[in-house]
Amino acid sequence: MKHLLSAADLTREDAITILDTAEELLGVAKRPIKKLPTLRGRTIVNLFFEDSTRTRISFEAAAKRLSADVINFSAKGSSVSKGESLKDTALTLQAMGADAVVIRHHASGAPHRLAHSRWTRGAVVNAGDGTHEHPTQALLDAFTMRSRLGDLAGKNVTIVGDVLHSRVARSNALLLDTLGAEVTLVAPPTLLPVGVESWPVRTSYDLDAEVEKSDAVMMLRVQRERMNASFFPSAREYSRRYGLDLARMNRLPDHAIVMHPGPMNRGMEINADVADSDRSVIVEQVTNGVAVRMAVLYLLLGGATEEETA
């Protein structure tokens, strides 16, 4: 593994190696001294062209626990909003000797561009690109589900909400399929992408029909602004048809869990009581995020990099 750009790049074996590694590393997170010397002398740059304090902090904690040097580069708000900046920034990072670049970008494909451009030689980790993918989020979701539900093969995972604009949904659908789970995407037809028939998933417009067979339900964030673009008529109608409320939650099987990649719109896609219920693993998702990102960074940088073996 040279980069982590898309969940589709991971074989079942890769994915399981990452999850198993994360499981070992989760032990470290629980120790009084949380630091490992593993990536001493490696430089990891967090290149964030889009605000995401949560994801950045998670990557930063992961890198620091492995003793890497971390440089945070936030390009948001500065003059570098236009395209050429990606190239210039990458060249700067290359000059700084970045071994890995963790990139969050509002443009789909920006991590691919960085990885395949020869602007930087380091490993590239996609920390969320536009409406494309967010593979480490999918890994941490899979990790959370596996720790609650066991082997994911044959498990029914229902992903509900704005699939069209969701990088989390894309990465989850791909990764969960690789891990053998049965994925169902539930959304109003306006929020399912054209061509979703070719994805390795089922789709449904009816949340009530899916609830009872779900082992895990993942609620996606729905931005209220979508309403203004006529993706749905009103927040009230959306939450009535596609929100997870107590009545729906109570129809889930006893072992089923409720997930949300955050940040939540309480009262929109998820009811506050549901978010705070025992079934909700939302806080766990955050803890697991650090371990999974440690695993990814370790597996990308912990051994000889391609350059060093070449």
Binding site: E24, P37, L301
Partner: peptide, 21 residues
């Protein structure tokens, strides 16, 4: 006790899977 993460020769080989601690 898996010592992989503490090895000083990590960079000499491809990354190793972690073993049980």
């Amino acid at each position: 006790l898996d010592v992989t993460l503490y090895r000083d020769d990590l960079r000499l080989k491809a990354p190793r899977a972690l073993l049980k601690t």
